[in-house]
Design a protein around this nucleic acid. Structure first.
Length: 311
RNA sequence: CGCGGGGUAGAGCAGUUGGCAGCUCGCCAGGCCCAUAACCUGGAGGUCGGGGGUUCAAAUCCCCCCCCCGCAA
């Protein structure tokens, strides 16, 4: 098997395991990495390079960071890649670039397409209470996550999975899976199969306000909501004019409905919050400006919290 | 220099018109009880993030630095 020349396009840490696996695979040579420009990030607005860029530099792979990927179309063309691999880049790639490599462009996606096209797909799977999700390797076309599927790998969602833990599991699972799928595709062992668009669903991009807890919702929904929103935007609510993040709650709701939604009360020496239907025990939370605390420790310092109404 | 909150006992917090450093929990010892994460008594544990300054006196006022966190990206 010849050594295939790849261009890797990606930004976030989700693609890092896959990128690392490809970069150290003797069957591939990554001739170029394309990632988003370094942007101000974090509390001090420090200009920060993407995880993919850092890894590429460590591996001695060339990196380009165009404002718009179409700006470097000629450059990509001149590299004459056999294949382009995309993982969590953060920008739609125009069709005239998709068509450059003879084998096209492959994408790593964090759901079992056609379910959950879009961006917040891991969160959507948890929020909907799915037992299983997975990763998809697909061929990109001009649509958003609409291209034909090459390979999929299912993964069970654990009772206590948050978007953070599930994302890490999916990223880890994708490392070897993507490399193998590419090889089987290049050798003709597998070929792209069209998605059944009638089964498609879309997971829209989340914003901070999507994390605001609606306490009139049922407790079992909110329990999933809390796990789905973690670590960003995080499930949060209002208390005394301040934001409070609800980090984790007990996944077994209490069958109590005697209070107003959002009302906090003591239950078996734990902190409970009334929901629209049943109630939840809050295990860990964080007041803005403070560190994340176990509910017992939190209550020790915030004497007025118990008995107040959140939201 | 993006905006803002905060660093006080093992944990969480109170304590600024400057004046012997507190509370809740935990911990140790003892007691009560059939028993207990309950209750009672006693106890250990802090250079108040670090450095400098003002002062008779600084957790508290002024200057510099370090660290944590919310917003924003």
């Amino acid at each position: 098997m010849n050594k295939y020349k790849l261009i890797f396009i990606g930004t976030s840490s989700f693609g890092l395991p896959a990128f690392t696996a490809l970069a150290s695979d003797p069957d591939f040579e990554i001739i170029l990495t394309i990632t988003q420009p370094d942007l101000p990030a974090g509390r001090r607005q420090i200009i920060t390079a993407s995880p993919i860029k850092l890894k590429a530099e460590e591996k001695g792979i060339a990196v380009l960071q165009p404002q718009f990927i179409s700006d470097i179309r000629e450059k990509i063309l001149s590299q004459n890649p056999d294949l382009i691999v995309v993982a969590a880049y953060g920008q739609l790639i125009p069709e005239d670039i998709l068509n450059i490599p003879q084998f096209g462009c492959l994408n790593l996606h964090a759901s079992l397409l056609p379910k959950y096209r879009g961006s917040a797909v891991i969160q959507a799977a948890i929020l909907n209470g799915d037992r299983q999700t997975g990763i998809t390797v697909m061929k990109l076309d001009k649509g958003l996550d609409t291209g034909p599927i090459l390979a999929q790998s299912p993964l069970n969602i654990a009772e206590d999975d948050t978007a953070e833990t599930l994302r890490a599991k999916l990223a880890a699972a994708s490392a070897d899976f993507l490399a193998n799928a590419i090889k089987r595709y290049l050798t003709g062992e597998i070929s792209p199969a069209p998605q059944d668009s009638s089964l498609a669903s879309f997971a829209k991009t989340l914003t901070k306000s999507d994390g605001l807890v609606d306490w009139t919702k049922p407790a079992d929904y909110l329990e999933k909501f809390i796990r789905a929103m973690w670590p960003w935007p995080a499930a949060w609510t209002w208390w005394n004019g301040k934001q409070v993040k609800i980090i984790s709650a007990q996944n077994q709701p209490l069958e109590i409905s005697s209070y107003k939604p959002g009302k906090t009360f003591k239950y078996n020496s734990g902190l409970a919050v009334q929901c629209g239907q049943n109630a939840l025990i809050i295990k860990k939370l964080q007041l803005e400006g403070k560190t994340a605390l176990d509910s017992q420790e939190f209550l020790r310092g915030q004497k007025d919290f118990m008995g107040s109404v959140l939201g």
